[in-house]
Nucleic acid binder design. Structure first.
Lengths: 123, 123
DNA sequence: TCCATATTTCGACGATAATCGAAATGTATG
DNA sequence: CATACATTTCGATTATCGTCGAAATATGGA
């Protein structure tokens, strides 16, 4: 991943609404979520959210597919992986013991306890 | 880590110059780098860089210490860890096989091959 | 104390981004 | 084909950000 797309991804995530939306999608998995559902959950106007989702999409962090009259958005885990990898690239200046504790992130991440997303699966 | 500081961190990183500076510091390890060295390497005006470093500092991603007439900046690996953890929190919607490949990030990260930073250690 | 070095702070200007109402597009249904 | 629904696009306004020159602060050395 090169600088310019990393900045695009980080800029896309550097906004409360977009970050919340992205995290919802990350937590939603491959099934994804319709735009309206996200807007309702985050209490944003549909048109505002739409432009935010477009920014995330343009950065490659999420993708859209039409399903009936809804548009379903899904997180791109590969893009996420590239971004995190970019931040960690050549880290710790040759002292592996510094970046070793970063591995604990995944111990927590893989736990997958799931907090948000109330009745989305049943709706 | 709560939303508001995550957005601050991502906003801080969402800029070419700041992202480059942060990555230099991440790669520099605990020794850190003086502001002037970063400015020279990134071809930025000292005052511009200074305000960018201030933003990264305010977000908690780096810290400053004075050493002689230089000011040495260092990356905060703990803050970095929190940010990455926040992005990965409750990921994958209960399907661990999705976020498992994210673990490969660290296989590469821990390699610590070191690219940039030419004669900084000898200067 | 006087000067050079290293870095930051201030102030202004131009560029970019966020927000919202209104209108347009695409899709199902009667 | 007309209508309702889901979402996007457009246009304008306001706020925030990035950049740069100039001046200020802090440190070390002659």
């Amino acid at each position: 991943m090169e600088m310019t797309s990393a900045v695009a991804s980080l800029s896309a995530l550097a906004h409360g609404g977009r970050l919340s939306a992205f995290r919802m999608l990350v937590q939603a998995g491959a099934a994804g979520l319709p735009a309206g559902e996200i807007a309702r959950c985050l209490k944003m106007l549909p048109n505002s959210l739409s432009s935010h989702l477009a920014i995330l999409d343009k950065a490659g962090l999420i993708h859209a597919r039409r399903e009936g009259r809804s548009i379903i958005y899904t997180a791109d885990y590969g893009a996420m992986q590239e971004l995190l990898g970019f931040l960690l690239e050549d880290c710790c200046g040759g002292a592996p013991e510094i970046c070793a504790p970063l591995g604990e992130i995944f111990a927590r991440a893989v736990a997958c306890h799931g907090t948000c997303l109330p009745e989305l699966e049943t709706a």
